[in-house]
């Protein structure tokens, strides 16, 4: 991890994240596995030009599923990833889809 440009992987867009955008001034990103809260804060502040109030991080557990309908059932394992919920100042916003400024 050398630069802030490697911290944020992608914005996460779901019904829940939409709600957080609109009501809680929170934006959700998938971040690098070894990113810290401070790094994330720096990255968001520089890239989107907003003031970050709070960063919460969590590691989303890998999803397990089973493949194969008959005979041998193999367990497949998804990848776990780190997710960051970034709260920014109430009067600012990030247009997630316009990309990095």
């Amino acid at each position: 991890m050398t630069t802030i440009y490697e911290v944020l992987r992608r914005p996460i867009e779901t019904e829940k994240s939409r709600h957080q955008n609109a009501k809680l001034h929170q934006y959700v990103f998938e971040v690098a596995r070894d990113a810290t809260k401070v790094q994330i804060k720096d990255a968001v502040q520089t890239l989107f030009d907003v003031e970050v109030r709070k960063v919460n991080v969590l590691v989303a557990p890998a999803k397990r599923g089973r493949r194969g309908k008959y005979g041998r059932r193999t367990v497949v394992r998804g990848q776990e990833y780190k997710k960051a919920v970034v709260t920014i100042r109430a009067d600012q916003s990030i247009d997630v889809f316009e990309g990095v400024k």
Partner: peptide, 16 residues
């Protein structure tokens, strides 16, 4: 659409 229940995706998401 991944991340949304059917019928709940907003306009921009559908467009994209």
């Amino acid at each position: 659409i991944p991340g949304f229940r059917p019928g709940k995706a907003p306009y921009e998401v559908v467009l994209r």
